Computed example of a mutant assay.
Amino acid sequence: MINQIYRLVSPRQFEVTYKDVNITSNLVVVRPTHLSICAADQRYYTGTRGEEAMKKKLPMALIHEGVGVVAYDPSGELLSGTKVVMVPNNPIEEDKFVAENYLRSSQFASSGYDGFMQDYVLLNRNRLVVLPDNIDMNIAAFTELVTIATHAISRFEHISIKRRGTFGVWGDGNLGFITSLLLKKIYPKCKVLLFGKTDYKMSNFSFVDEVYDIYDVQANVQIDHGFECVGGRGSSMAINQMIDHIKPEGSMSILGVSEFPVEINTRMVLEKGLIIIGSSRSGVADFEKTVEIYKQYPEVIDYLSILVGNVLKVKSIEEVTAAFDLDLSSSWGKTVMKWGI
């Protein structure tokens, strides 16, 4: 079978390439239906990822957030038409101490390896998680982003002390929204405080207990544990404010990605005996747990619908470019491409 792959060859320029694939192998053939644009994809698209990385990783098909339907499973285990979420992380070794998403040898779609912008994606069966039949695929498209929060909370649960009174989440964007939402569902008896700076974004966090403008937080506000979902140049302020308001021996989960070194107040980290937990990407177990959360708390899907921003039918490379450009101008929510090429 000849598969068409839509690769970024230089900033803002996509080209179609053709690859002969063997559908009689053990790989499951999936037809992507809904693809969600991530900030990491945008860094490649705009050329801001860095000259060295661009030279090393392009040409490459973008997108690592996506869902689709099974077109063909040689084992017959997955029926044609089954809705699935595609796991972008592909480990090639096992380590009983290190999770698959932290192994340096793991292959990650749209980061040095082709992502999901293809006519068909061929994946190992254990890289697919079956979705509920009635799920809104526009929302399911960014399940990978939800798994980032799921993974961070799992690491927090494993590493931190057991005081579970009050959580603080820094960041009023998509990841901050998802992390706050999952914390409220997983720890219903706990308080969740949101720290942000944009009023219209913070107005979407109707489910949290308290909302604070980061420039107007009283000194007596305290949290047991914090989650940083800011990233970029704002990471330093967010982490240091978290250090100021966290109780001794609390944990700080760092989720935001920054291209620059971040300065933090290590003196108070030491004095308070704080735990810093780094979290990046996710593994298949996080996808499975996230889908179970969808089933257990169907209202989570209702809340996540707020994050659906632009939904565009894409049938050409020109329309892909238009979708990426529109996403750049969007200040809230996720841009989803209904994949019809």
Rank of each mutant, 00 (worst) to 15 (best):
V9F: 13
S10E: 15
S10Y: 02
V29I: 11
I37P: 07
A39H: 07
A40R: 13
D41T: 01
Y45P: 01
M54F: 11
L62S: 05
V69E: 10
A71V: 09
P74D: 05
S75N: 01
L78C: 11
L79F: 01
N101M: 13
L103Q: 09
S105G: 03
Y113S: 08
M117Q: 11
M117K: 11
Y120K: 10
Y120E: 08
L131V: 00
D136W: 10
I139D: 01
F142K: 04
T147Y: 02
F156R: 00
S160T: 04
K162W: 08
G168K: 00
G171Q: 07
F177E: 01
F177V: 04
S180I: 03
L182Y: 00
V192I: 05
F195H: 04
F195I: 07
S203R: 14
S203L: 13
S203C: 12
S203P: 00
S206G: 13
V211M: 14
D213Q: 15
Y215E: 12
V217C: 05
V221T: 09
G231R: 11
G232D: 04
M237V: 06
I243G: 02
D244V: 03
P248C: 01
E249A: 08
G250R: 00
S251D: 02
L255A: 02
V262I: 14
E263G: 05
V269E: 00
L274V: 03
I275C: 09
I277F: 02
G278T: 09
E288Q: 15
V291N: 04
Y294I: 04
Q296F: 13
K313H: 13
V314H: 06
A323V: 06
D327F: 15
L328V: 01
L328W: 10
S331K: 15
G333Y: 15
W339F: 10
G340R: 14
